[in-house]
Design a protein around this nucleic acid. Structure first.
Lengths: 247, 247
DNA sequence: GGTAAGGTTTGATCTGTATCAATGCGAGTC
DNA sequence: GACTCGCATTGATACAGATCAAACCTTACC
């Protein structure tokens, strides 16, 4: 039985996830981008054995900060946000995870951030214990995890520079170029059309700004003909402007 | 021959490093804190074979951003700063490395930040190629590297919250508590006396502030009797104040 | 079509931190 | 002791971005 066949209430409640029949790794569209790129074709069956496909609806919470890590995920479609919240409600997004991204690199016992679906999401779920066992048997898989973790670390350092030292205009510019690069990797070709599935508040919480400043800055860029705002995101008109803004 | 025995000019030139005779891993003071804590006593000889002790003077540059990674380091004494610089001179420190900290977690080809000695520093140096080989032979050593990398990632996310969402006062408070915790781990016991070997400008570049704001904030805390400024750092007087500032 | 709800944009004003400009102070040197 | 050099501190002022407040879409639903 496949839950996808059923009608489901919109805005499903937090934490809801639905198993779908384990998909065939041979057909996986994000494999080359994902942690599984470390595996040879003859290893696909072994990883398939410890994975399940799951689905989350828009606004679902996938995991909550401080929860025990039960499962780890590779996003196969859709976008999630990684959220840290302060006691008084201030939020900082530490990132957005796109198709191919792995959640749970740390192999630690508890989550240090919440994961919330921004769009409908499908993901490949691994039990923590089975994956730990798998890692023990396959050092090259651990090496791939480590490579992904240190790449994340390098991106985190980029983001520290952004948060600590860039102006609002530079932050927005760097954000758009980052997303363009990431979508290009996923789609296999660059495009000046940049989908922005996240809302303005999420962009603000990612860049350390307020929603008003994000809105004003993007609209100023539109008035200056550097980009146009389209229903699902933006389209860059003047790439040179963005590239000299964030050299 | 041991370079340490020789008189050396102060403020040695950038990049200068001096081999000292390979020290005995059995005597290593930072081993329990370092990547080597993953090794059993019978493995100490094998890691000693691929390591050399080196020394850097205050203000030496250990590695430069974008340089090829030739060696990796464990700090055994002293403090270094990790620096990212923008084309126009704006700086963001992504961290300070203290005794026990490992530099070069990523195993990538080039450095993504500069490393500069803040105090005289001794470090244990590993050739990149030999360490890669070592890692291939010892999966538990790779696991330890990965554990350290993901711990760094979690700290980087903490720092993103600090940079994006905390006020100047909260940033200084969080910084002092972070250093207190790290010195406590190194010294084996907590103390309200917090050495600050880095200058005000380094603190500012770490916290995304200016030197004036750092100075003003620390002096305001002194006037409010939350701490006293001592020659080599600060002493916390009112721990409760700091703890409720950064809950 | 009406209207409610959630997000976005725009305007007016405020403020925390940056910037600009001295001054202070300790360590090293002549 | 006097001078210099490299920070650190302090004060006056400016401004980028926050805050407060309202208007303006969309989309969904009756």
């Amino acid at each position: 039985m496949n839950c996808l066949d059923q009608a489901r209430p919109l805005g499903a409640h937090a934490g809801c996830s639905h198993h779908v029949k384990g998909e065939d790794c041979r057909l996986c569209l994000v494999r080359p981008l994902s942690v599984c790129s470390a595996l040879e074709p003859d290893e696909w069956a072994s990883i398939e054995k410890i994975s399940t496909d799951v689905r989350f609806e828009e606004r679902d919470t996938v995991v909550r900060e401080a929860d025990d890590v039960v499962s780890l995920y590779t996003i196969t479609a859709g976008v999630v946000r990684l959220v840290r919240t302060l006691h008084d409600g201030r939020r900082q997004l530490t990132g957005f995870a796109l198709p191919g991204d792995f959640l749970g690199l740390s192999l630690e016992r508890t989550w240090t951030f919440s994961i919330e679906a921004i769009t409908p999401v499908t993901a490949c779920r691994f039990g923590r214990a089975s994956l730990m066992e798998y890692v023990d048997q396959k050092p090259h898989f651990l090496m791939r995890l480590h490579e992904m973790a240190t790449h994340e670390l390098s991106l985190a350092q980029d983001h520290m520079v952004l948060l600590g030292r860039l102006t609002a205009e530079e932050k927005i510019g760097a954000f758009l170029l980052e997303l363009r690069r990431r979508w290009a990797r996923i789609e296999g070709h660059a495009s000046d059309h940049i989908p922005l599935p996240m809302g303005r508040q999420d962009i603000a919480d990612y860049l350390g700004l307020t929603i008003e400043t994000v809105s004003r800055t993007i609209n100023q860029m539109q008035r200056a003909h550097h980009l146009v705002i389209v229903p699902d995101g933006v389209r860059l008109l003047n790439t040179a402007y963005f590239e000299q803004l964030c050299p």
